[in-house]
């Protein structure tokens, strides 16, 4: 029978896998001492992504599906409406939010700079740049909050039809994600400042950066969808 396992005791890994990152230094400490015995096959595994970043990647995939559901809901309502935005509803602050978009994008640039500091093992610069990221993120959220208060004063609420429903659900869902990402960034910052972060184990820091870039890059999509279209 020709099958997957017709060759007993083939090399543990195919050549393609073996060359993947084969000449990189191992990111994880090698198996300790006499751990798995002398006859243990050499472990060629160099995970392309460590557990923390791999998990964050899948978290982002799930979040993309969540927002895909919300955005498609938005389009169903948007395309079903005879006039959009509905007459007599307040207009969204397109210009102010465009500036705010730049603020959020700048926070991502700061996070990229933080990654460079991490590569150079410059912990002081790392802390500074992560701090700037968090500050810009907080500024974005604050401006969003002010705009919401103004809109509510003008009479746009969650219960004022499809326009208010979609706006507050989509933008609120994003704001909530920025808030959670901000808390994660602050937690990372606190670890760095307290000296409980080692550049040798950058997994969680880099996972946090990945998630931050995700919430930032999600925003222009929502901005164009909700504010401009």
């Amino acid at each position: 029978m020709v099958s997957a396992f017709s060759v007993v005791d083939a090399p543990a890994r195919g050549p393609a896998r073996r060359t993947t990152g084969g000449d990189l230094p191992p990111r994880l400490p090698p198996p300790g001492g006499d751990g798995d015995g002398p006859d243990r096959e050499p472990d060629p595994r160099r995970p392309i992504l460590d557990n923390a970043r791999l998990a964050t990647l899948f978290l982002i995939v799930a979040e993309v599906m969540l927002f895909a559901g919300l955005v498609s809901g938005f389009f169903v309502l948007r395309l079903g409406a005879p006039v959009w935005p509905p007459p007599l509803e307040p207009r969204l602050p397109v210009a102010a939010t465009a500036v705010n978009t730049l603020v959020l994008l700048a926070s991502s640039v700061a996070m990229l700079a933080a990654r460079r500091a991490l590569a150079e093992r410059d912990l002081a610069a790392l802390a500074r740049r992560v701090g700037v990221t968090a500050a810009l993120g907080a500024l974005f959220l604050t401006v969003q909050g002010f705009e919401w208060v103004r809109l509510v004063r003008f009479g746009l609420t969650v219960s004022s039809g499809a326009y208010g429903s979609t706006f507050y659900t989509l933008i609120g869902a994003h704001a909530l994600h920025v808030l959670v990402a901000l808390l994660w960034v602050l937690l990372t910052l606190q670890l760095i400042v307290r000296g409980r972060f080692s550049p040798d184990r950058p997994g969680m820091m880099r996972a946090c950066a990945m998630y931050w870039h995700f919430v930032v890059l999600l925003w222009p999509v929502l901005y164009v969808t909700v504010y401009l279209l």
């Binding site: 219960s159 326009y163 429903s165």
Partner: peptide, 12 residues
């Protein structure tokens, strides 16, 4: 009180 599924508010 949103109108995602409420036709009277423009929902579907």
């Amino acid at each position: 009180g949103t109108s995602w599924f409420r036709p009277s508010g423009g929902g579907e």
